[in-house]
Amino acid sequence: MSKDKVGTRTDFPPTPPEFLPEQQPDHPVTPYLRMERIPHVWCPGCGIGTVVKCFATALERSGADLDKVSVVSGIGCSGRAAGYLKLDGFHTTHGRAIPFATGLKLGRPELEVAVFSGDGDLSGIGGNHFIHAARRNMDLLVILINNFIYGMTGGQNAPTTPLTAKSSTMPFGNFEAPFNIPHLAASCGAPYVARWTCLHIRRLTWAMEEALDRKGFRLIEVIAPCPTLYSRLNKLGTGLNGMRFYHDNAEIRHGADTRELDIDFQKSITCGKFVDEERPTFLDQMNEHYGQVLGEKYVPMSPEGGWLHG
């Protein structure tokens, strides 16, 4: 392959490891993973595994009671994350991870519920749920992995595909304006909004740890390379080229105006923490309101859930 502006392919395809998964030395996040499910489905150079690793590290550092953490995914490459994390994991329907997670949170309010899914799942087919969960300030940590494309189905155009970028259904380049995900969340009232790339593993892990400590609808967008489809269709090289691109073009601007966070094709990617406010969550507001209006008659759901003991 000829040289292009983002670099050259050096080791492609990468050499596979010569030992079996069970022989591998323990990785620090092994206890957080379903090792019997490894190897995973993700392609070489894909960014999703990195995000899973960051999340596992953040969980460890946060000191969260892992028995009380549920992870919910929709459908797609990122949607497979729930299947690898050793937590109560729910691999649901396309686009419906957020409402499913809403049911978990309201059915047992003491749970920490994380949604881990992709840009197509959460902002395309699930876009309506995304904005309403943000509006309600539903107590969910949403990790949205944005690889600018529908990966699992073979590289179709996504609501996040940058203008002019090619996809299998926009072979002449995308002409639809993409979503600015952090702005979408912030304008609907999300109290915590951040964006990192999967090159920024320390900052991403720290953001996840911080978000685990916050309440309400917390959105972390993670920009990740899709070497098999997005990068190939757009001649951007391997996952490593993607990392180099983030290294050279990611700009950290904490507190940036979310209106200015559009991502143009192969231009700079603004990263950082954009919103970090305290706002009463859906459950806070419900409990406070019913408490005021109904007084002693109000019986809130037990943190353990409204289940019937046998």
Partner: peptide, 21 residues
């Protein structure tokens, strides 16, 4: 919820906490 897709998904989620939904 915002629509019936969400309602049904939330009910499935709710039921997995043991709360009858």
């Amino acid at each position: 919820m915002e629509d019936e897709l969400a309602s049904m998904a939330a009910v499935v989620g709710g039921s997995w906490t043991g709360t009858k939904s």
